[in-house]
Simulated assay, not measured.
Amino acid sequence: MSLFRRRKTEAPAIDDDAARVRLLDAAVSVLGRDAGAPLGTVARRAQVDDETARRLFPTRHALVEATVVRGATRIAGAAFLDDGEPREQIAMLIGRVWQDQAPVLPLTRLGARGPYRRSVERALAPLRATLREAIALAAERGDVRADISPAAVSWLVEQAVIDVIEAADAQALAGADPLQLAMTQALCAAGIGWGDATDVAIAARARLADVDSRRD
């Protein structure tokens, strides 16, 4: 019999608020790569014991919903329209969201099409209002379709972007540039011809790249 027993290593105690933040941060990292990962995997990544994790998020559904809603709320709060003509404003808005979500597409897809969609849509309300504003301006100029309301056009744009998210997550784009494709498809859904949409998307992509280079 050994005179010494190996003591079980335990994570230092943290309060519930800190544990919740750690679990949500870990969920982005884990579920952003594997949308089907279990709650226990997220808890281990967060260094939060299973008992605390299950007390804060009794089900995996609760954790995923809280994660995608937190992300949607953050994105919506940061939404704005860049300078420029409305079509480019639409492309830039879509491009910024795409850049933000590109590293975690499996999680984004869950929020866009999964059982959390209604909660995510409510959280995205400010972003959707900003998109409708740009579409309404473009419609007044005759740059996008005006046969249906800006709200309806905005919905079509949103669905087009979600389609690209699904295709990119499934690795079905055959070498296409997902960022540019998302912007192009969004503009096409708004009623812009493919050629013009591509030109606007290329210009918007160049602007985004310039902003990124200045940050570096």
Rank of each mutant, 00 (worst) to 15 (best):
S29I: 13
I94W: 00
D100Y: 09
D169V: 11
R6T: 15
T108E: 07
R141C: 01
E10F: 11
D100N: 11
A123N: 09
K8Q: 15
A152Y: 06
G40D: 12
L63D: 01
S149W: 03
V211N: 06
L107V: 08
R215Y: 15
G84H: 00
D100V: 15
L81P: 00
A176H: 09
A209W: 06
T41M: 07
V211G: 05
R214S: 14
R70T: 11
A37S: 03
L39C: 03
A11H: 08
A76F: 06
L31N: 00
A160Y: 04
L93N: 02
D50S: 12
I148V: 12
A186G: 14
E133Y: 02
G32T: 05
A79K: 10
A176C: 10
Q89V: 06
Q47G: 11
M183W: 02
T41A: 11
D199F: 05
A189G: 06
R87A: 03
D147G: 02
Q89N: 03
R113V: 15
R132Y: 05
G114M: 09
D49F: 02
Q47F: 08
A26K: 00
G142Q: 01
D15P: 10
R33P: 07
D83F: 01
I148S: 06
R44F: 05
S154E: 14
G71P: 05
R74K: 13
Q171L: 14
R55C: 13
L179Q: 06
A138M: 04
P103V: 12
G111H: 05
G77N: 10
G191H: 00
G84V: 04
V164H: 03
D83M: 02
E140G: 04
V48W: 00
D17S: 12
D143L: 07
L173C: 07
F80I: 14
A26V: 05
A11S: 13
F4Y: 13
L23W: 00
A168C: 13
S119D: 13
A172I: 14
I148A: 09
T130V: 12
T52L: 07
R205P: 08
G111P: 01
L181K: 03
V68G: 03
I90G: 01
R215H: 13
A197P: 02
R87S: 09
L63P: 02
R7L: 15
A209Y: 08
L124E: 14
D212H: 10
S154A: 15
A102M: 10
D169T: 11
R122K: 12
D196A: 13
P126Y: 08
R118Q: 14
P106G: 01
D216E: 15
L39R: 00
D16N: 08
D216F: 15
G95Q: 07
G84M: 03
R141M: 07
F80W: 11
L131K: 02
D49E: 08
A76Y: 07
G71D: 08
S154M: 12
R214D: 15
E10N: 13
R7N: 10
R60G: 02
M92D: 10
V64M: 00
P115V: 08
A19V: 10
A13R: 13
E166Q: 08
A172C: 13
V164N: 02
A206P: 09
D169L: 07
I14G: 06
G195E: 10
R96T: 12
M183G: 10
G40N: 09
Q159S: 15
R22T: 09
A91F: 05
